[in-house]
């Protein structure tokens, strides 16, 4: 499957550069404004959070952000509308939706996949749908050329890794610690070894996230991983400092990541 994700990671590899993946929550503040501004601030890939009432794998920052977004009236349809609006202005930056199963299931796996494709979405991370349960969702997405991106974690041993990377596409998201989003990062050397393992098993680029907040951490991880994901810190910066606060942080993080291998 070739889509914007494949192209973007190929470009990054060609420049021997790690990528910066920025996560933000749809509907929390002027999210359309932030979404539109992220590529210029240095985001190579964007993860757009779909708010859910019961975000079981998220820490306090993203939980609170999701509740604010829902309170402000955001829905899955609204999130897809923001993606479509973004895609009108930017035809190159890969856009990945991230969230939980129920709103998607409620819309219908197929209907969601079609609507997401129409909105110019390139990938989906569905936190609570593991490989054992994703057959219908994956089939629906594949038909529309959307990559189902899986998570590998420190608890994913070699046996399980084979299951996790089978039928996956785009990139693999390596969750650097056991824990919720926003908790501390793992030890960088261990993360490096895990990245190599996941890369070898999947043949796909590996992005590392969960708990990265500071440019220094991002830079250290970028020496070993294909991309670094930052979520909670951006969500907090957006909440506290609006679009300028969030893009300011993204610029610092992205330049640290982009400079890591120089």
């Amino acid at each position: 499957m070739t889509n914007r994700l494949t192209t973007r990671f190929a470009e990054l590899t060609a420049y021997n550069r790690a990528g910066f993946v920025a996560y933000m929550m749809a509907g929390d503040g002027d999210s359309q404004g932030l979404l539109n501004a992220l590529p210029a601030a240095g985001a190579d890939v964007i993860e757009l959070g779909m708010p859910f009432t019961d975000p079981m794998a998220d820490g306090p920052s993203i939980q609170a952000s999701a509740l604010r977004a829902l309170e402000a009236g955001m829905t899955l349809k609204g999130t897809l509308a923001q993606a479509a609006e973004f895609r009108k202005r930017d035809t190159e930056t890969p856009l990945v939706l991230m969230g939980y199963a129920n709103p998607i299931f409620s819309m219908g796996w197929e209907a969601f996949a079609k609507a997401a494709a129409k909105a110019g979405v390139d990938g989906l991370i569905c936190v609570d749908v593991p490989p054992e349960e994703d057959n219908e969702l994956r089939t629906a997405l594949t038909k529309q050329g959307i990559a189902l991106i899986r998570l590998a974690t420190p608890t994913t041993d070699d046996d399980r890794l084979a299951t996790v990377v089978a039928n996956t596409a785009g990139f693999v998201y390596y969750v650097s610690t056991t824990g919720v989003t926003g908790a501390g990062t793992g030890v960088v050397t261990e993360v490096g070894a895990a990245v190599d393992r996941v890369k070898a098993a999947s043949g796909l680029p590996v992005a590392v996230g969960f708990g990265v907040r500071e440019p220094e951490q991002a830079e250290a991880i970028a020496k070993r991983a294909d991309a670094v994901v930052v979520g909670s810190a951006i969500v907090d910066a957006m909440h506290e400092g609006g679009i300028d606060g969030a893009t300011g942080l993204v610029k610092r993080l992205a330049s640290a990541v982009h400079a890591a291998r120089r």
């Binding site: 079981m56 593991p130 998570l151 608890t155 994913t156 969750v175």
Partner: peptide, 19 residues
Amino acid sequence: DGRFGDFGGRFVAETLMPN
């Protein structure tokens, strides 16, 4: 698969799957 007809299953984050 832990299904009762179409209900049930194992819809958890990957970190918990091995557990």
